[in-house]
Every structure is written in structure tokens, then in C-alpha cells.
């Protein structure tokens, strides 16, 4: 192969498969890679050792590796305005980089910004605004008789209509950190990162079953639009509202074209949908179980 490449090689790298999607992360620093190696220790390598997406964590200028190190997020797909993070938040930078590749580059599955849990081969999807508690609910349900399929993205296969798991590290924010730490004291957590652009962040390693069974897709059976901080309530959601909300919750709906339209209208036509308000996690879990039992 041709030589004479200027610039240093990628210093540290890590590869992983999350559900059906392979990633590699290259970094100018060791610490984010070490954190990924620890937290993703039980995950497999990318299929055929060829990742779907590459993420790069790099210093804007060579000396910024050492002086006030700031982590720039790059990769196959980038947003020009993505601001750097301090090195102490390098793990967050890696996770954001992987999410960005999915949001901008995923073309195989209709990507829904939703959490998903499975029971008896059927999947519950939960989507809503940031702070609606979909990550927290998915994490808690994942330890109470459900299999966690993912807290951030649900992948709908346009050919089969099945949802594929994407059980990356669960990203807990602010008050949710304490809620989950108390509810699942024996779980494995990443480092607590304070005062990130998204507030305090701590990553939770999904339960062993979620990782072991991450290649099993499931048939979507119910979609919920949770809203945290209100008295318990629930209402059915009209198909057209579900349609609009799901297009808004998808970063690649437009890019997929007709297969995306077919996948989305199929979900809307076949899935019961409910908006639920809840004051606390326990109340939400009771609502979920009741709705699920009534299916």
C-alpha cells in the first residue's frame, strides 16, 4: 500500500457491536478507550470485523492533547457545529459520536428515537421529549421481567416490520441517576460525569440478558408516549398524531424514502398507542404493566 502518510496514526482504538450495528472508535487519548473497553467488555466485535461506522475523538491542535485537552467528535458523519468536550467527559464524547453516526448515517433500519423493551417476543416502544423518562423506564423495566432492547434508538426493519435491539450503555441524566442507583444497587455503572452540556451523566451497563440476546428482534406490540411529572393519566393517541410524532422522532425517515413510509405507516396502523402521564417511576411501571396486560 502507498506510504508517505503525513500525521500520526490513530493512537488508540476500540471496536464493538451493539445489536446489528458495528462501530470503531479511534482516539488521541487512552482514557475514553479504556472506559469503553471496561463498560462494553461483554459485547461482541463488529460482524466480520468490519464496523458500519467510525467515530474519531481528536484534539483540534496537536498540543491540545495535553494542554486543556478538548475532545473533538469526528467520524464518517459529522455535524460541523459539534462543540468539543473536556477529556474527563471523553466517554460521553464517544457515546455522542456513536449516536451521531446512527442519526446521520443509518440507512438499513428506520431509526426511532425511542426506548424499547421486550417480553414474550413482543416489544414495547416508548418515545417522547428529552426528560420524559424513557431511558429510566427502560432501565427499570429491564430489571423487572423485561429484556432491555435499547434506551435511545429502536431500529425498525422495513422488510419485516420487526424491531431490532440497540442496547448501548443506558445514558442516565441528573435525578434519574439516583433513582436507578437506588433501584438497581448491584448494577454496573460508568463514572459519574458532572456538569456536562446535558447535566450530570452516568452510564449504566445493561443486564447480561440484554447483551446476550441482543441479536433477537421482536414484534412491536405497543407504543407509549410517556410524560414525567404529572398525575397519573392516560389517553389513546390518534393514528395521525402517532404518525407525526414518530416522523419527528426519526432522524432518517426522509432519507429512507418509500421503505421508511411503509415501515412507519405499518407501525401506525397496527400498534395501539397511548400517552401516559406519571408522577414517579413506580407509578409508570404499574401503568405499563396494566396496559400490557390489557393488550
Amino acid at each position: 500500500m502507498t506510504m508517505m502518510v503525513a500525521g500520526p496514526a490513530v493512537r488508540h482504538s476500540f471496536a464493538v457491536r451493539i445489536g446489528p450495528v458495528g462501530f470503531r472508535v479511534g482516539s488521541d487519548w487512552r482514557t475514553p478507550i479504556a472506559a469503553l473497553e471496561t463498560l462494553y467488555a461483554d459485547y461482541p466485535a463488529p460482524a466480520d470485523d468490519v464496523p458500519d461506522f467510525s467515530v474519531r475523538l481528536f484534539a483540534r491542535r496537536p498540543w491540545r492533547r495535553f494542554v486543556r485537552p478538548a475532545v473533538m467528535i469526528g467520524g464518517d458523519y459529522v455535524l460541523p457545529e459539534a462543540a468539543p468536550l473536556p477529556l474527563a467527559q471523553g466517554l460521553l464524547a464517544a457515546e455522542m459520536g456513536m449516536n451521531l453516526q446512527m442519526a446521520l448515517g443509518q440507512r438499513r433500519y428506520l431509526l426511532l428515537h425511542a426506548s424499547a423493551v421486550e417480553r414474550d417476543g413482543r416489544a414495547l416502544l416508548m418515545t417522547g421529549m428529552s426528560g420524559a423518562g424513557k431511558s429510566t423506564l427502560a432501565a427499570l423495566l429491564g430489571r423487572r421481567g423485561w429484556r432491555l432492547m435499547g434506551d435511545e434508538f429502536a431500529l425498525i426493519d422495513p422488510e419485516t416490520g420487526l424491531v431490532h435491539a440497540f442496547p448501548r450503555l443506558v445514558s442516565l441524566k441528573n435525578a434519574a441517576i439516583g433513582v436507578v442507583e437506588r433501584a438497581i444497587p448491584d448494577a454496573r455503572f460508568g463514572p459519574l460525569m458532572r456538569a456536562t452540556p446535558k447535566g450530570d451523566i452516568r452510564h449504566l451497563v445493561p443486564a447480561a440478558e440484554a447483551i446476550a440476546r441482543m441479536e433477537e428482534p421482536a414484534r412491536p406490540a405497543l407504543i407509549l408516549f410517556p410524560r414525567y411529572g404529572f398525575e397519573p393519566a392516560e389517553r389513546p393517541v390518534a393514528p395521525s398524531e402517532v404518525f407525526v410524532r414518530l416522523t419527528q422522532a426519526s432522524t432518517n425517515y426522509t432519507a429512507l424514502g418509500e421503505p421508511g413510509f411503509a415501515a412507519l405507516t405499518r407501525l401506525v396502523e397496527t400498534l395501539p398507542a397511548r400517552a401516559i402521564d406519571y408522577p414517579d417511576a413506580e407509578s409508570a411501571i404499574a401503568q405499563v404493566e396494566r396496559l400490557w396486560a390489557a393488550l
Binding site: P46, A47, D48, D49, D52, R107, R108, A255, L256
Partner: peptide, 16 residues
């Protein structure tokens, strides 16, 4: 196989 899937996606993306 992993490369073939990436190539299918790239062709679909270009078509759209």
C-alpha cells in the same frame, strides 16, 4: 457479509 450490507445501504442512499 458486513461489507455487502454496507454497500446495499450506500446504493439505497444514493438512489434516494
Amino acid at each position: 457479509g458486513a461489507v455487502a450490507r454496507i454497500m446495499v445501504d450506500a446504493r439505497a442512499s444514493a438512489a434516494q
